[in-house]
């Protein structure tokens, strides 16, 4: 995907995106927990710096926005809980319970330092 973006961008064009990924320097077990708890494709392998360099980008910067991610996730759990009756009517009790458990597990992984969210920016040279 990064290579495709590089191809279609003009010279000196910026790329900026938000991404949730498993943190660096974790044990195999923690990585597995991060992959299970995180959104799809949370395992970024070598990380976005190397991936962007490999895809031909320069001026790479990563800003940690994990605190905002945790706030948004916590708010999502709280607001869903407050609307539980209507949500259960819409999606059913099993799916509501499962989705709330999934969000809590994701938030636990964030608080444990396993999942992080970054604002990544780079330039197509």
């Amino acid at each position: 995907m990064l290579r495709a973006c590089r191809r279609v961008l003009k010279k000196d064009a910026p790329l900026a995106f938000f991404v949730v990924a498993v943190a660096d320097g974790l044990s195999a077990r923690q990585i597995e927990r991060g992959i299970e708890a995180g959104p799809p494709h949370a395992d970024a392998g070598p990380g976005y710096g190397p991936l962007l360099r490999e895809a031909g980008f320069s001026g790479i910067e990563l800003v940690d926005v994990t605190d905002e991610y945790a706030d948004t996730l916590a708010k999502s759990i709280q607001v869903r809980e407050s609307e539980a009756n209507q949500l259960v009517d819409l999606i059913g009790e099993d799916m509501f319970t499962e989705s709330q458990a999934r969000r809590r597990s994701e938030l636990d992984a964030v608080h444990s330092g396993i999942l992080q969210r970054h604002l990544v920016s780079a330039v197509r040279p």
Binding site: M1, R3, R7, V8, P14, F17, P40, H41
Partner: peptide
């Protein structure tokens, strides 16, 4: 799909995505 963008080379001025990149 993000890896197969149906666009010409060097066509756009900026790119973004939110929580989808891999």
């Amino acid at each position: 799909a993000g890896a197969e963008l149906p666009l010409c080379d060097e066509a756009l001025d900026a790119a973004t995505s939110s929580d989808v990149l891999c």
